[in-house]
């Protein structure tokens, strides 16, 4: 799956989880850019992404994502394994 497609689907997940249709994520988006993205909402986001892409992150991935770009890299690695 191309990064672009991953971004499109990921964007929908973000909008759904944070209940905000104005969200558009890019490589550099971090938790600081989205008001409700705190440590509690983070895990809901992770679960929603897992469901969307049919994958399971390992716990180390979950706690070390620095930005959405890293998230997309990990998703891409899982999908293209």
């Amino acid at each position: 799956m191309e990064r672009e497609e991953i971004f499109t689907r990921l964007n929908n997940v973000f909008r759904d989880v944070f209940d905000d249709d104005s969200i558009t994520v890019n490589d550099n988006t971090t938790a600081d850019d989205i008001e409700d993205w705190d440590s509690l909402e983070h895990i809901n986001l992770i679960v929603a992404i897992e469901q969307e892409f049919g994958l399971k992150f390992n716990m180390h991935d979950v706690t070390t994502f620095k930005n959405v770009g890293e998230m997309v890299n990990v998703i891409s690695n899982y999908l293209n394994k």
């Binding site: 440590s39 895990i43 809901n44 992770i46 679960v47 897992e50 716990m59 979950v62 706690t63």
Partner: peptide, 27 residues
């Protein structure tokens, strides 16, 4: 609690809270 005993909080979040939230039971 985000500012008090931060390393215990992070430890519990990463090793207990997140795995619990991700578990099939909680979902």
């Amino acid at each position: 609690w985000r500012r008090w005993h931060i390393t215990l909080g992070t430890f519990l979040k990463d090793y207990i809270f997140y795995p619990l939230m991700k578990s099939d039971f909680m979902q």
